[in-house]
């Protein structure tokens, strides 16, 4: 039951030590991946809410997400980074830097629970 229409293709990476994200209302999502529309190129793009965005928009996005929550809940706000597994870390690093600047320290790298490899 997604609230947004995905405009980027996301195949999350597999991990074993994953935790369930609790309290979904306390989570804001940042999507990163290759645009679904092929004419938009193959460069990884960031999607916030329903539209494509740039790294500079993240601070504003987090601020508006905070605004939408109760004051008591604000410090529990988690940012979930939903990125495609073929994304380069450059984009992710930029996002992380922006999040640090605005003080959104709690993050979650969205990943599926994969099979334990031995």
């Amino acid at each position: 039951m997604r609230e947004v229409t995905l405009r980027v293709m996301i195949i999350p990476p597999d991990a074993t030590a994953v935790k369930k994200l609790e309290k979904k209302s306390m989570v804001s999502y940042i999507y990163v991946g290759i645009p679904l529309k092929t004419q938009l190129g193959t460069e990884s793009r960031i999607q916030l809410n329903d539209a494509f965005a740039n790294v500079d928009d993240i601070q504003e996005f987090i601020a508006s997400e905070r605004e939408a929550r109760d004051e008591v809940d604000r410090k529990f706000l988690t940012t979930s980074i939903k990125a495609d597994k073929n994304t380069r870390m450059g984009v992710i690093t930029d996002i992380k830097q922006e999040l640090r600047k605005i003080g959104a320290f709690k993050i979650n790298y969205s990943s599926r629970k994969g099979i334990q490899k031995k």
């Binding site: 039951m1 994200l21 979904k24 979930s80 992380k96 999040l99 600047k101 979650n108 790298y109």
Partner: peptide, 17 residues
């Protein structure tokens, strides 16, 4: 038809700038 996407992931805490 109902999908319940349970979100899982690795939780981390970023350091302050």
């Amino acid at each position: 038809t109902t999908t319940m996407d349970i979100d899982t992931g690795i939780t981390r805490k970023l350091p302050p700038p």
